[in-house]
């Protein structure tokens, strides 16, 4: 039985979060070779994944810093804990 696009799109998403079984991978491959819509969907969610990875890496290298006030507060809390 040929699986519908709803099932295949689910598997395409799962592939980012778990390892697909051998059978599932074959199923996806065969379906994609015949279905241009799922093929487009696969490309688009790959691109979304790339977009989020890019944002993740640029956001982490941005210069958000702890405020001076918060640093003093943490320093004090650490000092109090050391004194106990």
């Amino acid at each position: 039985m040929k699986k519908g696009c709803d099932k295949i799109s689910h598997l395409l998403s799962d592939a980012f979060d778990r390892k697909l079984s051998w059978v599932e991978r074959i199923e996806v491959k065969i379906h994609l070779s015949m279905c241009s819509l799922c093929h487009s969907y696969a490309q688009n969610i790959n691109m979304m994944h790339d977009i989020f990875s890019y944002i993740r890496h640029t956001d982490m290298s941005e210069n958000s810093q702890l405020s001076k006030l918060k640093k003093l507060e943490i320093q004090k809390a650490l000092k109090d804990q050391c004194d106990d």
Binding site: K3, D6, L37, H39, M47
Partner: peptide, 10 residues
Amino acid sequence: GEWEMNPRTW
């Protein structure tokens, strides 16, 4: 199980 909102390649 067919697409109602067709994906288009970006």
